[in-house]
Simulated scan of single mutants.
Amino acid sequence: MVDTAAPAAERERAARAARNRGRPTTTVDQAVEYVRYGGVDTLHDLQRPRTDEPAEVSFIITTQVMELLFTLIRQRWEQARDALDADDVPAALAALKRGAEAQDVLANSWELLASLTPTEFNRFRDALGEASGFHSFAHRHLEFLLGNKSERMIEPYAALPGVRAELERALAEPSLYDAALRLLHRRGLPVPAERVERDWSERYTPHPGVERAWAEVYADDRPDNELLALAEALLDTAERVTRWRHRHLMAVKRSMGAKPGTGGSSGLEWLAEHANKDVFPELWSLRTAM
Rank of each mutant, 00 (worst) to 15 (best):
L230E: 08
L93S: 02
A238D: 09
T4G: 09
D178G: 00
V57Q: 13
F137I: 08
R48D: 15
R11N: 13
L171N: 10
S265P: 00
G209F: 00
L189F: 08
A15E: 13
G188M: 06
W244A: 08
S266E: 10
E12T: 07
W284D: 13
A80P: 00
R36S: 14
R23V: 12
L181F: 00
R74C: 10
S150N: 09
A15F: 07
T25G: 15
L72Q: 14
A180V: 00
R23S: 13
V241W: 12
R243T: 08
L113N: 04
R123S: 13
A18H: 12
V191H: 02
F280C: 01
L68N: 14
V2D: 14
R187Y: 06
M256N: 03
W284P: 01
V279H: 02
A179Y: 01
M66W: 12
A215T: 11
L46I: 05
Y177P: 03
R240E: 04
V105D: 13
W214R: 10
V32P: 04
L235V: 04
D3Q: 09
D221E: 15
L106F: 08
S115C: 07
D3G: 04
H246E: 11
E155P: 03
R74D: 15
R247I: 04
L146Q: 14
A127L: 09
L171I: 05
A213M: 07
E53H: 01
D87G: 04
Q47F: 12
A275F: 07
E197T: 07
V217W: 00
D85I: 05
